[in-house]
Simulated assay, not measured.
Amino acid sequence: MNDRVTIPTTLARRENKVLRPRDAGDVYAHPRSEFERLLEQAVLSRISTGYYALAPMERLGDPRWRPDLAAVALGVAQADYGRDAVALMSITAARRHGALPRAIGTAVVAAPKQRPVLRTNVGDVVFVKRDVRRLDLERVETDLTAGWMTTPEQTALDVAARPGLGGIDEAEAESILRALARKIDWTVTEKLARDQHRPAALARVKGAAGA
């Protein structure tokens, strides 16, 4: 760590470490120019146009640090819509649940609005318009923020309903569903499918599980 690196306490203590220049308007008179300085010091890492990630304390000043794609997806969505309006879902939640062994270059996040794919320096973020209040969620911790992701039951239904979301193929979707089927509570899954009017998705999950 560079001993000359400093960062204001109010930024260091933010729960969400994904920052936009306007988020620092109460700290700096000219946030954009200050962010450029923090980039040069490797305090911030540029994620995409208008979005920056604050390095963890132990990596401040290390230009090699890059954030995790799932953390970026959740942090960006929270920055734009608030913590409780967004959640990691589909293949991104599946990977968090241990059902997708390989890292992929796309993260999927539920958000209040549909919007174009966000290209970042660690991968693509796909936003899916969903009312997260209607989803079955659990807490998730990332290296940039804490928030929500879909449960194994919800994730299985989401992958079954849109198996190609995030760029995976049919065979990999089936593999994910088989792995999730070993983790899910079938009573919960069936109730979610009824409430969300997803009989075809439920049938696909059961087919993958051999149930």
Rank of each mutant, 00 (worst) to 15 (best):
R4H: 06
P8I: 03
T9I: 09
A12Q: 15
R13Y: 11
R13H: 10
R14D: 09
E15C: 09
N16Q: 12
N16L: 10
R20A: 13
D23N: 10
G25S: 05
D26G: 03
Y28E: 01
R32N: 08
F35P: 07
R37C: 00
L38K: 13
L39M: 06
Q41F: 02
Q41Y: 10
A42L: 10
A42H: 15
V43E: 07
L44W: 01
R46P: 07
I47Y: 09
Y52W: 10
L54C: 04
A55Y: 00
A55V: 01
R59V: 00
L60T: 00
G61C: 01
D62V: 01
W65Y: 05
R66W: 01
L69C: 04
A70M: 08
G75F: 13
Q78V: 09
A79E: 02
G82F: 02
V86G: 03
A87T: 11
A87G: 08
L88I: 06
M89F: 06
I91M: 01
T92L: 02
T92F: 00
T92A: 03
A93V: 02
A93S: 14
A93L: 06
R96C: 00
H97L: 03
A99N: 04
R102A: 13
R102K: 14
A103N: 14
I104A: 11
G105C: 02
V109Q: 01
V109Y: 00
A110H: 01
R115H: 11
L118V: 15
R119S: 12
R119A: 13
R119G: 09
T120N: 13
N121E: 14
N121C: 07
V122D: 11
D124V: 03
V125W: 12
K129Q: 09
K129R: 14
R130Q: 08
R130L: 04
R130C: 00
D131C: 11
D131K: 14
V132T: 14
V132S: 07
R133F: 01
L135P: 11
V140A: 05
E141T: 15
E141G: 13
L144F: 10
T145S: 09
M149P: 00
M149Y: 03
T151K: 12
P152C: 11
P152G: 11
D158H: 14
V159K: 14
V159T: 15
A161N: 15
A161P: 12
R162A: 15
P163Q: 14
G164L: 12
L165G: 08
G167V: 06
G167F: 07
A171Y: 00
S175L: 02
S175T: 10
L177P: 05
R178K: 14
R178S: 04
R178Q: 08
A179P: 02
L180W: 02
R182M: 12
I184N: 09
D185Y: 06
W186C: 04
W186H: 09
T187H: 04
E190A: 15
L192D: 05
L192T: 05
R194L: 03
D195K: 15
R198K: 10
R198N: 01
R198L: 11
P199T: 02
G207M: 00
A208V: 07
